[in-house]
Simulated assay, not measured.
Amino acid sequence: MIGGLGALDALSGSMRLGGVSGPLTPVAPSVSTSDFASAVAEAASRTIHTLGQAETVSMTALEGGNVQTREVVDAVMSAEQTLQAAISIRDKIVTAYLEVSRMAI
């Protein structure tokens, strides 16, 4: 799993589907502003943690520590995926904000 997508997992967990015997109908999500803010903050902290881990593993390898090349590659690839996911989420939030700001009142 990509570390930066934890916020999406948290947000998708807030939507429940009802009507087990009949057709599935979405129930209105009960996400408040603080829940969204905490989900974004958690995703940001996971991203920072993943990037920090990759940096630590890379520096340990450069200093001649007991780190396999595979571990360095895995850490860097994970950090890259996490950063790409975070940038994508940021872009979606900015796009949504711009769309809302253009709405006629």
Rank of each mutant, 00 (worst) to 15 (best):
L24P: 01
A86F: 07
V20K: 13
G13V: 00
T50R: 15
M77K: 14
P26Y: 07
H49T: 12
A37S: 13
A85S: 07
A86M: 09
S14Q: 12
A61D: 02
I89G: 01
S78M: 12
A28S: 08
I89Q: 05
S32L: 07
G19K: 10
T82L: 04
Q84H: 10
G52Q: 13
V40S: 04
S34F: 10
A104T: 02
A61C: 01
S38E: 13
G18Y: 06
L98T: 06
D74F: 07
H49K: 15
I89F: 13
R70V: 08
L51Y: 09
M15V: 15
M77P: 00
A54N: 06
V27M: 12
Y97C: 01
S21M: 10
S21F: 11
M15F: 14
V94R: 13
A75E: 02
S45V: 06
R102F: 01
L5H: 03
G22L: 11
M1Q: 04
A7Q: 07
A104M: 07
P23F: 13
S32N: 12
L24Q: 08
R16M: 08
V20P: 01
E63Q: 15
G18R: 14
N66I: 03
D74N: 10
A10Q: 14
G65A: 02
G22H: 14
V57S: 03
I93V: 13
G52Y: 04
D35Q: 14
M77I: 05
G6N: 11
T69F: 06
L24S: 09
L5K: 04
D9C: 05
T47Q: 13
S88D: 11
G22W: 07
A7F: 06
D74G: 00
